[in-house]
């Protein structure tokens, strides 16, 4: 197995087994006077997939953005060793990444090495090795010379994941990674991330809209509403119909199918027209 991430995972194996890969303590983010993340605490264990669920505007993306330093926050966000995370520690797969015109897939993946550029802003030989092994690992070699702006949604999402992998971070953040994809590509992107988590020892923190996918892939879920965590724990503990219906503002049911939880909108009951009284 060509391990892309050996360099960054070796340390965490022995030293930080007990400490979480990433922790947030009382994280608060305000825009103007409105608090959109209101005191979030969470711990992401090494090798774990933690799913963040909640309706639009709940603060999921803002929480992820504050972890990569894109939003000003109060409170503490720390890695296992107590450091504030940087671009060499946490890689973000954004919700709607910009695909620049005329940039090839290989160039795009090389951007993942930005944090490691030397004084002359040239990628080292090692940087190039990492980029090419990521391309190879994700079976993107055939795409390598194509322009990113010409890729389909599914291909583009793989390429963005490849760029994040090239950052060689022990923690991967995904912001609605499958929102623009058809069902088949949704599954394949999530399975790819899950494979990488297992083979490379990544820890994954993912904001997810698809609750059934969240139930299938995440080890633990936290449910956020109006910037607050309203539930957290194993998927079967969080995905309760009453709770979800209240948070999402619409009746939802949770059905076990083949041992997996599937969250569905409750069938719409048409109000029967009142019988005309003669």
């Amino acid at each position: 197995m060509s391990s892309v991430l050996t360099a960054s995972t070796q340390g965490s194996e022995s030293a930080v087994r007990s400490a979480p890969a990433l922790s947030c303590r009382d994280v608060r983010v305000s825009f103007r006077d409105q608090e959109v993340v209101c005191g979030v605490n969470l711990e992401l264990d090494t090798g774990q997939w933690l799913g963040i669920i909640g309706p639009n505007g709940a603060g999921k993306s803002t929480l992820l953005r504050s972890i990569v330093g894109l939003a000003d926050y109060s409170g503490a966000i720390a890695l296992g060793d107590g450091q504030t995370p940087g671009a060499a520690d946490v890689a973000l797969v954004p919700q709607s990444p910009i695909m620049p015109k005329g940039m090839t897939v290989a160039e795009y993946v090389l951007l993942g090495r930005t944090a490691h550029l030397g004084w002359l802003a040239r990628e080292s030989r090692a940087d190039r090795e990492i980029a090419s092994s990521v391309l190879h690992r994700l079976e993107l070699t055939a795409f390598a010379d194509r322009f990113v702006s010409t890729l389909s949604g599914g291909e583009a999402q793989q390429v963005v994941v490849a760029r994040a992998l090239a950052q060689q971070c022990p923690v991967l953040l995904l912001d609605e990674p499958t929102s623009a994809l058809d069902l088949g590509h949704q599954v394949s992107v999530l399975e790819l991330v899950d494979d990488l988590r297992r083979t490379e020892g990544l820890s994954v923190l993912a904001a997810m809209h698809d609750l059934s996918a969240a139930a299938r892939f995440a080890d633990r879920l936290i449910l956020i509403d109006h910037g607050r965590i309203v539930a957290g724990g194993r998927p079967e503990a969080v995905l309760k119909p009453d709770l979800l219906s209240a948070v999402y503002g619409t009746p939802l049911t949770v059905q076990p199918i083949d041992g997996e939880l599937v969250v569905l909108p409750e069938p719409r009951r048409r109000a029967k027209p009142p019988k005309e009284t003669p």
Binding site: A106, R128, H136, T141, A144
Partner: peptide, 13 residues
Amino acid sequence: DADAAHSAVRRAF
């Protein structure tokens, strides 16, 4: 395939 990936990166670089 690994070589192809390598040369693609070299072209990009």
